[in-house]
């Protein structure tokens, strides 16, 4: 279970950003410039139950990634607390640390290590990782010769071999072709069955409505609504809900 209580994240935006020590020293001599406070997140509270798939949606810049980073323990909140039972693993990007000059094998071992897997564990899962990604024949090929889709698939299949109690997935539905996406979804549902908690963000509304138990809409760093995925999507993008309804109706009428 993951509980977020009154999380806020403030950033200070200087009117002129001082990124060098030289500028900083100059500014100490000159008059003090005012900094503008900016809330990336404000008073966010929610709970995700064990074995639940929880979706987070919202426009670009609404604070989704910042929130995921805070839940994943990568950055601290300014105020508020996050408590989680078990190991929470954030996957904010696919193929972090992947290097084009290394072979698929070397990349898997490196990526696995970054994700906290032991060498034996990776060796045990190695074949399965390649199989799931559908790149068995290319284990010793350099990653730069892989297509973008193949590399992403490899990243995803390495990632899901990590041991975790809860995962945080940021925009990973865009991986691979339709068939691979389906495989990913089946895998996520398996995790759910094992009682693992999953938090996902997406700009595609269909997976949110298909797979999430509950969803949350963020707007300008605040919670707009938490509830049933369909209601939440309705508040964000009513078009996609009606489109779905139309499609279903036409499908029914054909039958």
């Amino acid at each position: 279970m993951i509980t977020a209580k009154k999380i806020s994240k403030e950033y200070y935006i200087p009117h002129i950003r001082k990124t060098t020590l030289f500028e900083k020293l100059l500014s100490l001599v000159r008059e003090h410039r005012k900094m503008e406070k900016f809330y990336a997140l404000k008073d966010i509270s929610f709970e995700v139950q064990k074995g639940e798939i929880f979706g987070i949606i919202g426009k670009n810049g609404s604070g989704k990634t910042t929130l995921l980073k805070i839940i994943g323990g990568i950055i601290p909140p300014t105020t508020g607390t996050v408590t989680a039972t078990g190991k929470v693993v954030p996957f904010l990007d696919l193929g972090i640390g992947f290097h084009p000059e290394l072979t698929a094998r070397e990349n898997i071992y490196l990526y696995g290590a970054i994700m906290g897997m032991s060498r034996e564990q990776i060796t045990r899962e190695f074949k399965e990782i390649l199989r799931f990604a559908g790149v068995e024949r290319f284990a010793d090929m350099k990653l730069k010769h892989f297509s973008a889709g193949m590399a992403m698939r490899l990243a995803f299949s390495t990632m899901i071999r990590t041991a975790f109690d809860a995962i945080i997935l940021d925009e990973v539905f865009a991986v691979g072709d339709g068939e691979f996406q389906k495989k990913c979804m089946i895998e996520l549902l398996k995790f759910k069955k094992q009682g693992k908690t999953i938090i996902i963000t997406s700009h595609a509304m269909d997976p949110i409505m298909d797979f999430c138990d509950r969803a949350m809409l963020l707007e300008n760093g605040t919670v707009k609504i938490i509830g049933k995925p369909r209601d939440v999507v309705m508040a964000y993008d009513p078009e996609s809900v009606t489109k779905r309804r139309r499609l279903r109706k036409s499908a029914d009428s054909i039958i």
Binding site: H99, E101, L102, Y109, G116, M117
Partner: peptide, 19 residues
């Protein structure tokens, strides 16, 4: 301290630097 991680990072850096 994750020894395996340190090993992998060192190995990778070495390979890439002197490849």
């Amino acid at each position: 301290i994750d020894v395996n991680l340190i090993k992998e990072l060192v190995k990778t850096d070495f390979k890439l630097k002197y490849y």
